[in-house]
Design a protein around this nucleic acid. Structure first.
Lengths: 226, 226
DNA sequence: CAAATATAATAGTATTACTATCACATTTGC
DNA sequence: GCAAATGTGATAGTAATACTATTATATTTG
């Protein structure tokens, strides 16, 4: 990917002070990604993060209301980034089928490269979302948080891909369910591959998750190869 | 379903003292299911549970090491119960296709009836698993807990259905991924239907989740209606 | 009837998830 | 160039959480 000066904008609702606008803010975000990876979300605390970056926890609280809101911020960033990759990947491609194939790759492949966006390690963030992402919405307060728009980019990503499916088969009844099944399912399968392999059919070095979901999507919308 | 005197056995590894063997134990389990539903898993505490049942929290700690282990117990019970329903439903049915169809119904339908097992409200437990189930394994300690066997019944349920798929199409490459996608996906779609409907295509009163996954499974293993 | 077991009642601890205050350094606006 | 605003550090404090420990009492069992 080219080294463009693109900036991922995260909804101001998710933070108290824009972490992207200061050194400390960027340090908080980038260190939190590594630390959540290291400790898991439950054991991760602002106190430990503060020690990690050499700042008091009170300074972190000036940026994020709680560690939950930090997770919301990170997932919001992640899905905005996925959306960007999605739009970029399908530009100038005329065939809807090819566009959908590209979309499935983006939604299902493990992120390996990174470096486009200065302070965020996309590979590590991809792991955070895989391991802890569901905790951002599996909460009692989901309805209020949904109303505040915390999940709107995620929903937009699903809609973009659903629309491709409807273009290919306007009669298909469950495009949103299909796409959300693929999106969440892919993260889950990658998690299972590492920890509960009996629930998967992953082979070393092979992109089986992508293959599996690609086959799944095209077979259910009745578009086997040509 | 008939009122059989069936007892769901949960691995002793999950508790300190068998909650099924005493009045207090059964009260703890049944009250915890309602209270987790009411408060969500994060706000749920043994202290509140104690107040709810009129016992000190120290008594609850004699049964379960932590609230996490209580969740493990509940999900273990749930999947054992699903396995029982699965085996019961396919007994004496010769057609593998019909068996798989029944299995998909069991794995994807919301639980509405209950009462077979005295102290556990299966409808409420189904909701706990839908809302909080992923938190039982999305933890840093997953590998050790997997080795202790906490997820073995869940894996067995997946295997039973995978085997049906392989019977129908021995060449299908991803039976485990397909089944775990269906199992987790169905819980997720039901959760989305309540809170993030934009991610679904649920219509009121219709079993779209079941229909969607049924169609998905049979189309990908190449077994459209006869 | 003694011993074992189960539960209640109470207390205590380290950690968590914050909130509040004040000092100081830096940036910015006029 | 100076005052005001802003950002950060340092420190303290609090209610709640997730436990552990101890003792007393009631009940069951051998």
């Amino acid at each position: 990917m080219e080294n463009l000066q693109i900036h991922i904008k995260v909804s101001p609702e998710t933070f108290l002070k824009d972490p992207n606008a200061s050194d400390l803010g960027r340090k908080i975000v980038s260190a939190s990604i590594s630390l959540i990876n290291e400790l898991g979300f439950e054991a991760f605390t602002f106190k430990k993060l503060g020690i990690n970056i050499g700042s008091p926890e009170s300074s972190i609280y000036r940026y994020f209301e709680s560690k939950h809101m930090l997770l919301i911020y990170l997932t919001y960033w992640y899905w905005s980034w996925v959306e960007y990759k999605l739009v970029f990947a399908i530009t100038n491609i005329k065939s809807t089928k090819q566009r959908l194939e590209k979309a499935i790759i983006i939604l299902t492949k493990t992120v390996e490269e990174d470096g486009l966006f200065s302070h965020i390690n996309e590979t590590l963030l991809d792991r955070v979302v895989m391991n802890e992402g569901v905790k951002s919405y599996h909460i009692k307060e989901i309805d209020e948080e949904n109303e505040k728009g915390y999940f709107k980019v995620y929903k937009r990503v699903v809609k973009r891909v659903s629309d491709m499916i409807l273009e290919l088969n306007p009669k298909y009844k469950y495009p949103n369910m299909l796409v959300s099944t693929v999106v969440e399912g892919a993260l889950m399968q990658r998690f299972f591959a590492e920890h509960l392999p009996a629930l998967t059919n992953i082979e070393k070095g092979k992109c089986n998750v992508t293959k599996f979901y690609n086959e799944l999507v095209f077979s259910v919308i009745n578009l086997h190869d040509d």
